[in-house]
Simulated scan of single mutants.
Amino acid sequence: MQLYGNPDLTGTERYFDKDEVIVSKTDTKGIITYANRTFGRLAGMTPQQAVGKNHNIIRHPHMPRCVFKLLWDTISQGHEIFAYVINRSLNGDHYWVLAHVTPSYNKAGEIVGYHSNRRVPNREVIDTAIIPLYSSLLEIEKSHESPKEGMMAGLNKAVEVIGGSGKEYNHFIMSLGG
Rank of each mutant, 00 (worst) to 15 (best):
residue 5 G to F: 07
residue 9 L to P: 01
residue 10 T to V: 03
residue 11 G to Y: 11
residue 12 T to C: 05
residue 13 E to V: 03
residue 14 R to N: 11
residue 16 F to E: 04
residue 16 F to L: 08
residue 17 D to E: 10
residue 18 K to V: 06
residue 19 D to M: 04
residue 20 E to L: 04
residue 26 T to P: 10
residue 28 T to N: 10
residue 29 K to G: 00
residue 31 I to V: 09
residue 32 I to A: 02
residue 33 T to G: 02
residue 34 Y to P: 00
residue 35 A to Q: 06
residue 37 R to W: 15
residue 38 T to K: 00
residue 38 T to W: 07
residue 39 F to Q: 00
residue 42 L to Y: 08
residue 45 M to V: 10
residue 46 T to K: 03
residue 47 P to F: 04
residue 48 Q to N: 07
residue 50 A to F: 01
residue 51 V to E: 11
residue 51 V to S: 02
residue 52 G to L: 03
residue 52 G to S: 05
residue 53 K to R: 15
residue 55 H to D: 08
residue 58 I to Q: 07
residue 58 I to H: 07
residue 59 R to T: 08
residue 61 P to A: 14
residue 62 H to I: 11
residue 63 M to P: 02
residue 64 P to L: 15
residue 66 C to T: 12
residue 67 V to M: 10
residue 67 V to L: 13
residue 70 L to I: 09
residue 73 D to E: 15
residue 74 T to E: 15
residue 78 G to L: 06
residue 78 G to R: 10
residue 80 E to Q: 08
residue 81 I to A: 06
residue 84 Y to F: 09
residue 85 V to R: 03
residue 87 N to L: 08
residue 87 N to C: 03
residue 87 N to W: 08
residue 88 R to H: 08
residue 89 S to K: 07
residue 90 L to D: 12
residue 93 D to N: 15
residue 95 Y to S: 02
residue 95 Y to E: 01
residue 97 V to K: 04
residue 100 H to R: 09
residue 102 T to R: 15
residue 105 Y to W: 14
residue 108 A to D: 14
residue 108 A to V: 02
residue 111 I to F: 11
residue 112 V to K: 15
residue 113 G to H: 10
residue 115 H to S: 06
residue 118 R to M: 01
residue 119 R to G: 03
residue 120 V to T: 13
residue 121 P to H: 02
residue 121 P to R: 02
residue 121 P to D: 01
residue 122 N to A: 01
residue 122 N to W: 02
residue 122 N to T: 01
residue 124 E to G: 08
residue 126 I to N: 07
residue 126 I to E: 13
residue 129 A to V: 10
residue 129 A to K: 14
residue 129 A to T: 12
residue 131 I to L: 13
residue 133 L to Y: 13
residue 134 Y to N: 01
residue 135 S to C: 05
residue 135 S to Y: 13
residue 138 L to C: 09
residue 138 L to W: 14
residue 140 I to W: 12
residue 140 I to D: 05
residue 140 I to N: 13
residue 144 H to I: 05
residue 145 E to C: 07
residue 146 S to F: 05
residue 146 S to Q: 12
residue 146 S to V: 05
residue 148 K to I: 11
residue 151 M to K: 05
residue 151 M to T: 14
residue 151 M to L: 14
residue 152 M to L: 15
residue 154 G to H: 10
residue 154 G to K: 10
residue 155 L to K: 09
residue 156 N to I: 05
residue 158 A to L: 13
residue 159 V to C: 06
residue 159 V to E: 15
residue 161 V to M: 06
residue 161 V to F: 06
residue 162 I to A: 02
residue 164 G to H: 04
residue 165 S to I: 01
residue 165 S to H: 00
residue 165 S to E: 01
residue 165 S to Q: 00
residue 167 K to D: 01
residue 168 E to Y: 03
residue 169 Y to E: 04
residue 170 N to K: 05
residue 172 F to R: 02
residue 172 F to L: 01
residue 172 F to Q: 03
residue 178 G to I: 00
